[in-house]
Design a binder for these strands. Sequence first.
RNA 1: CGGGGAGUAGCUCAGACUGGUAGAGCAUGGCGUUUGGGACGCCAGGGCCGCAGGUUCAAAUCCUGUCUCCCCGACCA
Length: 439
Amino acid sequence: MRLSAYLLPTLKENPAEAQIVSHRLMLRAGMIRQHAAGIYTWLPLGLRVLRRIEQIVREEQDAAGAQEILMPTIQSADLWRESGRYEDYGKEMLRITDRHDRAMLYGPTHEEVVTDIFRQNVKSYRDLPRMLYQIHWKFRDEVRPRFGVMRGREFLMKDNYSFDLDHAGARRAYHRMFIAYLRTFARMGVKAIPMRADAGPIGGDMSHEFIILAATGESGVFCHRALVDKPVPEKVDYTADLQPLVDEWTALYAATDEKHDPQSEQVKALGDTLIAARGIEVGHIFHFGRKYSDPMKAVVAGPDGEPVTVEMGSYGIGVSRLVGAIIEASHDEAGIIWPESVAPFAVGLINLKTGDALTEATCQNLYDRLQRAGVDVLYDDRPDRAGAKFAAMDLIGLPWQVIVGPKGLEHGRVEVKNRATGAREDLSPEAVVDRLRSR
RNA sequence: CGGGGAGUAGCUCAGACUGGUAGAGCAUGGCGUUUGGGACGCCAGGGCCGCAGGUUCAAAUCCUGUCUCCCCGACCA
């Protein structure tokens, strides 16, 4: 992509409305624009990141055996009356009346819709287990939206719902998602620690929040040192018993500050293996049994022909929130530092002197060859000053910069800079493509 | 929903207290000088001063109402 033809409205100054670093950087880097409180337009650069995160989530969900569907954003109130939540859900639910005076709502979540789909279409224990997920926009009319996309009213979420014949099956589904989540966040280049969460009236150990560690995180967290760099499982066989793998993670202490008790024996025993950090919740997995299948009569025929009410769980990932959370975890004074796996482009190609014949030709050649090699390039071909281009490229945080100017070319060299480390290499233009292809 | 703050050019903000023809920097367009870390000079365009009402000869400025946005708290992915 040529920057001269790309909508990338970067800002030199911090917009007054943005307080936290990810919100400021997303506005300054031209990723988003606010439309109303907690509601945003995603501009081309921001959308690219959102799509890449979405795709990682999708691949890991599919690998864990879930199937993607797409449910409506606007739902009928009828289903919610059936589950009993229409009256319970407060003003966070955006209620809409259509032209025929029917009660509708913009979905804040989708348990009712997915349970309805399930009960209509799945009738036998032979069809279990099932996991159905979607990546879709939801709306919760938060009293106080803030932190940019980290706590918007409209947000993109992956929500998965599991259906099992019994509690043992539900536990297997839970474990599959537990492991899938570890892999998902690791692929995005962030450290996400599973922490036991409130399981509400269900109780038990079947609810975990996944929290990304970031110095500017919203809540304090405490965990065993070993969790921070614990390697995430590779090549998982999702048909195997995953309990031992999950136990390895849940055995180590981890708690958010509201659950953390410094006086407890367990915490005291940790000594200096306990670390305090800050974090941002980006995922939540939850077993809720028959909370919806019971009132909504999601029932299948069991092996003996008797009806069985299915066991359910739900598994959320805040996809749009992750964009902000990753920035909180990965930035510096100059701007964003994208992990390679979610970067909007892999490489920023900087032409330091447009109009200079050799510089132009070298840039054009690199641009073509990088694209042919399958490397996503953003080519800054604008006739701006060098300083402005450096600043803009650092701000938007592409992992690699290829810097081409007359001074280097005099010696047959261009510069390759790594955004994260700042390390620079002088290479011949010919060597650049191989260098970046093998990154 | 309680408490606080702010709405003036695309962005950051002055002007308001003490009413009198709407400003600066950045950004945008033109010209020139520059050119390896957000350059400099000259010129130009761009504003129902959030909206409505009131006071006044006269309102960005004073008064009332209202809408919107931000921050702290409670709440939440």
